[in-house]
């Protein structure tokens, strides 16, 4: 049975972090599993956890009245989910539902926050990793907005800069 620190190290999010840092963070982490259909997080609920998906698929959803749940994006092995624990009011923004059996590592949000505060070097390292993923997600969301496969991508109400 692998210990938590080595499981953390296997996840792309923590690649390259020192053993000391991983052991330091491991005390916040626990291994967890979700069945298909189970929710990892619910919109507007306290954002207690940071998730590292080890296997399985997760849908990030929001419920649209008169329509039902609408999937915004799907996540899979190697992806992360949830950073609302990082800043007040520590509430989850979207639903996260397992589309298949999911194995993941769950890090306590409060625990992680406190470790980052006490160890700013590590905190900044993690922040850079979050920022990169958040940027990629933002870029992907913008491309989605462009509706590139739609009949009139140029007429999408996305604000366009000249010579973009």
């Amino acid at each position: 049975m692998k210990n938590i620190a080595s499981l953390l190290h296997e996840h792309p999010f923590f690649h390259g972090l020192s053993g000391g840092d991983l052991n330091f963070l491991a005390t916040c982490a626990e291994n967890s599993r979700y069945k298909e259909g189970e929710y990892l997080a619910k919109e507007s609920a306290p954002a207690n956890h940071f998730f590292l998906i080890r296997s399985g698929r997760v849908a990030v959803e929001t419920f649209v009245p008169n329509h039902g749940p609408l999937c915004l994006m799907t996540l899979q092995d190697g992806d992360i989910f949830g950073w609302s624990w990082l800043y007040p009011p520590y509430l989850t923004a979207f639903d996260a539902r397992a589309l298949s059996p999911v194995r993941c590592l769950r890090l306590g949000g409060k625990c992680l926050r406190e470790k980052c505060e006490s160890e700013p070097r590590l905190g900044f390292e993690l922040m850079k990793r979050f920022a990169r993923i958040a940027t990629e997600r933002l870029q992907a969301a913008r491309i989605q907005l462009l509706d590139v496969y739609g009949p009139h991508p140029s007429q999408n109400p996305v604000q366009r800069r000249p010579h973009l």
Partner: peptide
């Protein structure tokens, strides 16, 4: 796919995401 309801079992998001990983 860019958009899907809950019946879809594949990826939702842009193709660059799965390509990247």
């Amino acid at each position: 796919v860019d958009h899907a309801d809950t019946n879809w079992n594949g990826h939702v998001g842009v193709i660059t995401d799965p390509l990247r990983v």
